[in-house]
């Protein structure tokens, strides 16, 4: 039986894990996507193809890979982080950072290439030029952030495999839904599903509001 306090705890944990994972994905994906969009180096096309492939990675495959790495007998087993929230965060970062990276690269490549020359021609340093391009592409970059968050808040396979769905420790909304469905508690599963939908809607609504405020005059 799930009590209100437990639902609250599961909901907060889900949000914390996915927000952390999305934040880390942003820290990796924004610079990497920028490098792929603006850089000229050997292997760039190959890397871009890898990232684009990564945007469609099945979470369950990521879960399998991370579980093998973190398993007690695995290469990172000594850290003892399997079946912890950190393990779920690692798996979710692997799922969402290619999404943020790929969409960042696409957003910057969609800008007029002469904009870079214009920025340099007004005295921008390299960092100022990149910051200005991010500002110009802020609407699609916010969309990248939304897609990154959406890809992890709703995934279940990886969280189940590396988190273990342990009550009060690694149970998140998606894994709780799977559990309650398995037990035949469809009312609770549906309620949790609606809660997940509501949270996803509220987060995206907030980001969309920021995005569209930028789009208005």
């Amino acid at each position: 039986m799930i009590f209100d306090a437990e639902i609250l705890q599961i909901t907060i944990l889900s949000l914390q894990i996915s927000a952390f994972a999305t934040g880390i994905s942003l820290l990796i994906g924004l610079p990497l996507g920028t490098l792929l969009a603006l850089g000229k180096f050997w292997g760039r096309s190959f890397l871009l193809s890898m990232v684009n492939t990564g945007m469609g990675l099945p979470p369950v495959v990521v879960g399998l890979f991370v579980a093998m790495m973190l398993w007690r007998s695995g290469p990172l087993g000594d850290f003892q982080i399997i079946y912890t929230p950190l393990a779920i965060i690692i798996a979710q970062v692997l799922i969402s950072f290619p999404v943020v990276t790929g969409l960042t690269a696409a957003a910057l490549q969609a800008l007029d290439p002469r904009l870079r020359l214009q920025l340099y021609g007004l005295g921008a340093s390299r960092l100022q030029m990149i910051w200005s391009l991010w500002r110009e592409a802020r609407l699609p970059l916010l969309a990248a952030l939304m897609a990154g968050f959406g890809s992890v808040i709703s995934e279940v396979g990886a969280s189940m495999m590396v988190g273990g769905n342990i009550r009060h420790q690694t149970r998140v909304l998606t894994t709780a839904i799977v559990l309650e469905t398995g037990k035949g508690n469809f009312e609770i599963a549906i309620a949790l599903g609606l809660l997940l939908l509501l949270i996803t809607f509220l987060v995206n609504w907030a980001l969309t509001w920021i995005q569209q405020r930028g789009a208005r005059e």
């Binding site: 007029d112 002469r114 904009l115 020359l117 214009q118 340099y120 021609g121 007004l122 005295g123």
Partner: peptide, 9 residues
């Protein structure tokens, strides 16, 4: 220097 291009950009 300062640069002005064909399109205002």
């Amino acid at each position: 220097i300062a640069l002005v291009m064909q399109d205002p950009l």
